[in-house]
Amino acid sequence: MTAKTPQTALVIGAGPAGLMAAEVLSAAGVRVTVADRMPSVGRKFLMAGKSGLNLTKDEDPAACLAAYGDAAPALRDALADFGPAQVMAWAEGLGQPLFTGSTGRVFPVAMKASPLLRAWLARLASRDVRIATRWTWTGWDGAAATFDTPDGAQAVTADVTILAMGGASWRRLGSDGAWAARLQGTTPFRPANCGFRVAWSDHMAPFFGQPVKATALTAGTSTSRGEWVVTREGIEGGGIYAVSRAMRDGATLWIDLLPDLAAERIGQRAAAKGGKASLSQILKSGLRLPPVKIALFHEMTRRAGIAKTAPLAETLKALPVIHDGPAPLDAAISTAGGLQFKALSGLMLRERAGVFACGEMLDWDAPTGGYLITASLATGRAAALEALSWHP
């Protein structure tokens, strides 16, 4: 039997995954309705672009796949078909020139998401994609998806449906994870790419908001040389996010405060200050640590119960960070958990034929560096392609 292309499609969720699904479906001539619970679309996408929209990372496909760890086959297949090179070509096709930073991260020259989103929505409008805002999905009524809308309850029946409702962080931007209660086969949400809470002593207050530079972070098998920040609530920033998955799963965070100085050289510099020098003098003038690093050293040795007689070089090269767990789920950049891949056949729900899922609502972890947006686009595209080839 030859598969018949669906004539109508419903996409629930208007973030990168949902909009990419709508793009692929509409390009095939399908009449598409996109429903989103917020007053406007792409709100988290726009927020991500406020500090520079990191679309992807310019690296070979094998390195890209490796960044997702033990990703499910459906996610790996989606990324193999639509990885960094394809993301860059797609953005340039929307008239957005790109540049690649020194670490391989790729950004629009405009350094924000709004020009790309405007061009994307214009493309969808030219294909008569209908976008309905303030539509909150409430479940199913037979074959129809039901919604609370400004005009009251609505029911929409379509040949195929794409679910792209996001994770459970930044709920004020649209992703609250409430959909999980209406689907089978979900895993509780967990924070990803997140900060961690620390109950600082009073002497740390002068350093709130200060960046910590030139450190090496290790948690489990994850490492980072990225910058991070001391905040009133704890620690956060790119360096922390890079090791946050291991920290969330129980690994201790170790900080090398002098990653470019060998332990032997640290010992020599400390000894050169003479036996009468205080520890503070050694840290400040002998090792030239900035005040924020000195404060962290004193804070964490106290919290960890490290004796003042402990070898200084060893402690500076492996300072344990005692924290109180991840920051609240809603403050995380992204979330793990959600719809399990075993609840899917490819990207179609096993419990409901003709309904496909994509984006951050799937249970996968993405590191920072453009990987979240890349996989959201890739799975949105893959779900739409599966929908186009599916038939009852």
Results as ranks from 00 to 15, higher is better:
Thr2Pro: 15
Thr2Glu: 12
Ala3Trp: 08
Lys4Ala: 08
Pro6Asn: 05
Leu19Thr: 00
Thr33Tyr: 11
Arg37Leu: 13
Lys44Pro: 15
Lys50Asn: 05
Leu55Lys: 00
Leu55Arg: 03
Ala67Ile: 07
Leu75Met: 04
Pro84Thr: 02
Trp90Gly: 04
Gly93Tyr: 14
Gly93Cys: 03
Thr100Pro: 12
Gly101Arg: 01
Arg105Ser: 04
Val106Asn: 15
Ala113Thr: 02
Ser114Ile: 13
Ser114Cys: 11
Pro115Asp: 00
Pro115Gln: 07
Ala119Cys: 12
Trp120Pro: 06
Ala125His: 09
Val129His: 15
Thr136Leu: 14
Thr138Leu: 12
Ala144Asn: 13
Phe147Asn: 15
Gly152Ala: 03
Thr161Ala: 02
Trp170Glu: 00
Arg182Glu: 00
Leu183Val: 02
Pro191Asp: 08
Ala192Asn: 11
Arg197Val: 05
Arg197Trp: 02
Asp202Gly: 08
Phe207Gly: 09
Pro211Gln: 00
Ala216Gln: 04
Leu217Ile: 08
Ala219Arg: 04
Gly220Ile: 01
Ser222Tyr: 13
Arg232Gly: 14
Met247Leu: 15
Gly250Asp: 01
Thr252Glu: 09
Glu264Pro: 03
Ala271Cys: 00
Gly274Met: 05
Gly274His: 09
Lys276Gly: 15
Lys284His: 08
Leu289Glu: 06
Leu289Asp: 02
Ile294Trp: 05
Phe297Trp: 11
Glu299Tyr: 14
Met300Pro: 04
Thr301Ala: 10
Thr301Asp: 06
Arg303Asp: 11
Ala307His: 02
Thr309Arg: 14
Ala310Phe: 03
Ala310Ser: 04
Leu319Lys: 01
Val321Tyr: 11
Val321Lys: 10
Leu329Ile: 05
Ala332Arg: 12
Leu344Phe: 09
Ser345Glu: 10
Glu351Pro: 14
Arg352Pro: 13
Ala353His: 02
Ala353Gly: 10
Glu360Cys: 11
Leu362Ala: 02
Tyr371Trp: 06
Glu386Cys: 12
